[in-house]
Write a protein that binds this DNA or RNA. Structure first.
Length: 215
DNA sequence: ACCCAGGTGGCCC
DNA sequence: GGGCCACATGGG
């Protein structure tokens, strides 16, 4: 199948409005780091704790002690690394964009992306999810799930992040809303059916998928 | 007990 | 450019 039919098939099965709920860009950025290799339900709990502690702002998060932050984010795993990444990001944003984090997104896209990638703990996928879900920029997130789903459906076979991203950019136009919906739907699909050990029974793609090993 | 999770940095070749 | 490993908790 091709990418357009994958999109429309998924679109008729999933509703992904408000898929990444957040009250601010900073909250999206915090979630993007916390969710790395981590179940989203744990992220939700921790975000709510951070909100209760009033830590969902660059200023407050850069001022809280590392030890406190570590304890609060512990349920998300890799908590020592992530606590340092979060505090460093918060300090950077507070120093460079004291008026509003959203100033970060008002420069050229490539510059914003490079700036994000320069921060420890923010790799390509995290940078792009921030650009897409916080900045509403036309950048597709070529996550591991995406390469897996594209390969098994026969849409595209590649492990290269930039190749996959370029492919989607060239096939789907440049509407951020389309990118975020596709990404969300692919994640929902993959979590349920397209695991390392696949469970194809009940998959909405059914016979449109070219995956040959069907348990 | 097992597998999985909305990856990244550091190191190596 | 890629391959490997540590990082760590919690859910199904």
């Amino acid at each position: 199948m091709d990418l357009a039919s994958l999109y429309s098939t998924l679109d008729s099965y999933y509703s992904v409005d408000e898929w990444w709920p957040a009250e601010s860009s900073f909250e999206v950025m915090v979630g993007a780091i916390l969710t790395q290799q981590t179940n989203w339900s744990n992220v939700t709990r921790v975000i709510e704790d951070l909100r209760r502690w009033d830590l969902l702002s660059p200023r407050s998060m850069s001022e809280v002690s590392l030890e406190t932050l570590e304890e609060l984010i512990k349920p998300c795993g890799f908590y020592r690394q992530k606590a340092r990444y979060l505090k460093n990001m918060a300090r950077y944003l507070w120093m460079h964009y004291p008026s509003s984090v959203d100033k970060l997104f008002s420069k050229k896209l490539d510059e914003t992306r490079s700036e994000l990638l320069a921060l420890k703990g923010i790799g390509e996928e995290t940078a792009d999810s921030i650009l897409l879900f916080a900045g509403r920029k036309p950048v597709f997130v070529a996550a591991t799930y995406v390469s897996r789903v594209l390969r098994r459906t026969g849409v595209m076979d590649s492990d290269s992040y930039s190749e996959i991203q370029d492919f989607v950019h060239s096939e789907l136009g440049s509407d951020p809303e389309t990118y975020s919906r596709l990404y969300a739907m692919v994640v929902e699909l993959a979590k349920e059916y397209c695991l390392d050990t696949p469970r194809c029974s009940g998959c909405p793609l059914n016979d449109q998928c070219s995956f040959s090993v069907r348990p």
